[in-house]
Design a protein around this nucleic acid. Structure first.
Lengths: 337, 337
DNA sequence: CTGTTAGCGCATTCAC
DNA sequence: GTGAATGCGCTAACAG
């Protein structure tokens, strides 16, 4: 004889003197039940501390009521608003959120995704390095997926939510030119192959071109979206005696690195060199001087992505491409008072 | 007639010409199977793209193979190493991690925890504001729970993983006294009722007492573990002309606030006033001067907590109280070169 | 070593 | 409105 380990719907039904079907109906409000018996059921459930077991309902319903979020790591400041908004939205819509973080180091290795049809109803993917093969497989079985901050391969019609990298970077570079009269503007690139990095660089180039400033290749270096490489690059420029009066960093992390290199070399910011970043990461306003940057609308991206995902799950058509605007955040590192 | 929506174990069994039991045994390596048929099964599974449905195995096994992590928010830098280590460890041990973040604003409201027996095998809780009632209920049904960074109510034998707040703060305060000759040392308290805050203040007081420095109540103010309140407090002290040559901040966030207030008032750090923090948050080394602080071993806490939790899940006894050491991180804000 | 069978706990038909 | 019966997909006995 087995021991009943936890209270099930049967216990509640017995206690309330009704069938399990009725208990289910009351608790899920799926069908009308006479109020008097409904009350009995609720009382019994409450009294026994009954909580429906997720696995059982998932199995019975064929849905998990769970959304998955795939992240490349938790190490970046950048994620915070994004993850917050996704968390909230999922809760609001009654979904459980399963977050998986890609194991470090395991690059290119074919491995099974921890999240998928087996445990979620849909997936939010923010991971550029995701196997295209995986994505293809997911798409082939019509599994609901929305990409965050990056576009799918051209032949795959997977909805994505993007931000206006190009326009944001163009605008902030232009601000340096027209607002502060800078002409020798250096650029700290993000990782090669990274979409955001690519688009941001385009924006930088577009602004120069629009104002008749020729691109000086010796003023474009690796920032890698990280502090250390950016610092090294700028230190190298200084050591070589390159002449620049502003630095446009690919993101706020590399802006921090630039600031540091400048400080060590005794260059004053923004007086000698103006510096701007991208993302408006939480750090941005702790840097000194406070960093002028482009705000990436993380929270909005999260909300939009969940909305599209829910649409897919509901079998409706989703926006294939949601483009969210960025905005300038003027602080002091550009030279504004 | 229903349409089979996704490939199940039956499909694999049919394709391989074996029973579902054998498929299960091969895929879970739960019992030996002749290699030749095992290979057939694997091939079939692979070919069909079979992925066992989590809900079904959970239901059949009576376990979810899932661990829950309850966080108060994602807004704090402090979490990063902690969450990373928990994530990794869970993956290493073959568990799925379900992260829930307490909905903002819903204070004191009796609400059902999103995580519990219904969807996890055990819970890691880092949320001081958790209803004691909830904790009691969990404990009553012997549900595996480990508390992070805070102790359970005295009458509840729930394992917890703590760090040496008191000793860490004592040591860093002493460093200011013996290493840099400071005597007028102010303190920026954390939130009232917060355990960490309380213990850290004890450490501060202990160091003063040990060196015969009387506690000056006018030099103890609210830091709230946040930048803005700390800045306000220090600005107020300065405006009032209070005399101090060092500030011990309850955490790195309030240290940042202190630094800012000092800078605005033209006080030089560390020359005029030394400043130290607690946590060694990622920000700490971006502050200027780089912040001397106490390292809270976030990653170690995560690993220890998971290990204890797995022990509980396995039905073994767990350490009721794991105390992890903190360590001094000497940078420049204390006056060291 | 392998196939057969019986649930796991719940939602959901179908009858009444 | 309500109860009885069925099945979701899988694992774990139990036989063989």
């Amino acid at each position: 004889m087995r021991i009943k380990s936890s209270v099930t719907i049967d216990d509640v039904a017995a206690a309330a003197g009704v069938s399990t079907a009725t208990v289910s109906r009351v608790l899920n409000k799926s069908l009308p039940v006479v109020e008097s018996t409904a009350a009995r059921v609720r009382a019994a459930a409450d009294q026994l501390g009954y909580v429906p077991k997720a696995a059982a309902r998932h199995l019975a319903q064929g849905a998990t009521n769970t959304l998955g979020l795939l992240l490349p790591g938790v190490s970046d400041d950048f994620f915070r608003p994004l993850v917050s908004s996704i968390t909230e939205r999922a809760a609001e819509t009654g979904y459980t959120l399963l977050i998986a973080i890609r194991p470090t180091g395991r690059a290119g290795q074919a491995h099974q995704l921890p999240l998928g049809k087996q445990n979620t109803d849909g997936l939010l993917i923010f991971d550029q390095s995701l196997y295209d093969g995986e994505l293809q497989r997911l798409h082939a079985i019509h599994f609901p997926v929305v990409l965050l901050y990056h576009a799918p391969p051209a032949d795959l019609a997977v909805p994505c939510v993007l931000i206006e990298n190009r326009e944001g970077m163009r605008a902030i570079t232009e601000h340096l030119i027209t607002g502060h009269g800078r002409r020798r503007i250096a650029f700290l690139r993000g990782p090669i192959g990274n979409e955001d990095a690519q688009q941001r660089e385009e924006g930088y180039r577009a602004a120069l071109a629009a104002h008749g400033i020729p691109l000086d290749p010796t003023l474009v270096g690796a920032g890698e979206f990280q502090e250390a490489p950016a610092r090294a690059t700028v230190a190298h420029w200084i050591a070589e005696g390159r002449n620049f009066d502003a630095i446009v960093a690919g993101d706020d992390g590399s802006a921090a690195g630039a600031l540091e290199a400048l400080r060590q070399a005794g260059r004053r910011v923004p007086h000698d060199v103006a510096v701007v970043g991208f993302d408006d990461a939480p750090r941005a306003c702790y840097l000194s001087p406070r960093l002028t940057t482009v705000r990436a609308p993380g929270a909005a991206v999260g909300r939009a992505a969940i909305d599209q995902l829910l649409r897919l799950i509901a079998g409706q058509a989703a926006e294939l491409r949601t483009l969210l605007p960025t905005s300038l955040v003027i602080r002091h590192s550009c030279g504004c008072p």
